[in-house]
């Protein structure tokens, strides 16, 4: 009696596991990726806010294949996108992921980490605390945007290899350089440079077409752009935008916008204006040059006003 119950229980569990495995593999269709340089692959997210029609696939992610293993750079906005990225890696190489690199804390870049529970995660030294303070809010927002299923199974915050300045990782005849920056787009921005091909994964330190979003410090970002410009890359992968862009020319539009933003807010402050005055007018000339201007410019102006009024 006991035995048969146990067997029954076991069978049920086994059946459930089979079902789960089936569900997972059936839905984890490999993401489309482009090989932008030998052994360097990029999946291009759409330029949009996360929504059901895009399944939260709104940020670029990629991977670099060395002789000994694969470095994964950002994992997408949901656990499911992470699983699909992992399928894409498996479809392109028999090498295994040896490190996941999160370029910064934003959920569209890190929630796919759930699919890489067996892989160490590298990130900026500030990443762990910054994400810990935000993850619950991000998870809730994702559930609101895409539904509870999409937000299920997000992994606890984990940063196994914090980077405070620079770290080199040898993937096997292929050295990649991880560089941490002072506060710019966020307070935990990190880039990945593949020396073999001169490819720079810039994360959200580089926005192309998508209006830059200031969740850190606009002046700091301009200083970081001056530093980034000296990276001897031939191409860059932006956090949002095309899979690959020319370097360093692709920085020009972002630098222009941030300069206009800072100058405009300073003018309003000097004239004794309010945040509302600034939101109403600052960077208006940039409107037609970017996508998602209305979604991000008012917030950028508000954040930059609160930053610059302490000058």
């Amino acid at each position: 009696m006991t035995t048969s119950l146990e067997i029954g229980g076991f069978l049920t569990l086994a059946a459930m596991l089979c079902l789960m495995a089936f569900t997972t593999s059936a839905s984890a269709e490999p993401l489309a990726v482009t090989e932008v340089a030998p052994g360097v692959f990029v999946h291009q997210g759409v330029i949009a806010e996360p929504a059901p029609d895009n399944h939260g696939d709104t940020a670029n992610m990629g991977f670099i294949v060395g002789d000994d293993g694969v470095a994964v750079i950002d994992t997408g906005g949901t656990p499911e996108l992470g699983r699909r990225l992992r399928e894409a890696i498996a479809a392109r190489t028999d090498k295994k992921p040896v490190v996941v690199i999160n370029t910064h804390m934003h959920p569209d870049h890190v929630f796919g980490d759930a699919a890489f529970a067996d892989v160490p995660i590298a990130g900026h030294a500030n990443l762990r605390d910054a994400l810990a303070a935000r993850q619950e809010v991000y998870r809730q927002r994702l559930a609101d945007e895409l539904g509870a299923d999409a937000a299920a199974g997000i992994a606890p915050v984990r940063v196994d290899r914090p980077v405070s300045e620079e770290v080199r990782i040898d993937l096997g005849n292929r050295i990649i350089v991880l560089t941490a920056y002072p506060t710019a787009h966020t307070n935990n921005d990190l880039t990945v440079f593949d020396r073999n091909t001169g490819t720079l994964f810039a994360g959200d330190l580089l926005f192309v077409d998508h209006l830059p979003a200031v969740d850190g410090n606009a002046l700091g970002w301009l200083r970081v752009i001056d530093r980034l410009e000296r990276v001897p890359a031939v191409r860059a992968v932006p956090g949002h935008g095309p899979a690959a862009v020319d370097w360093p020319g692709a920085l020009d539009a972002e630098r222009r916008y941030l300069t206009v933003l800072v100058d405009g807010v300073r003018r309003v402050l000097k004239a004794g204006g309010s945040i509302q005055d600034a939101v109403a007018g600052v960077a208006e000339d940039e409107r037609d040059r970017w996508l998602l201007f209305d979604a991000y410019n008012p917030r950028n102006v508000t954040a930059t006003f609160a930053e610059l009024e302490w000058e």
Binding site: R134, T183, D215, W310
Partner: peptide, 23 residues
Amino acid sequence: AGGCSAPAVKDPQEAMARLGRIK
């Protein structure tokens, strides 16, 4: 929405460094 539970300051180190400063 979300203003009370919104994540704390963008740059905690800088915020602590200037805590209590009055302009």
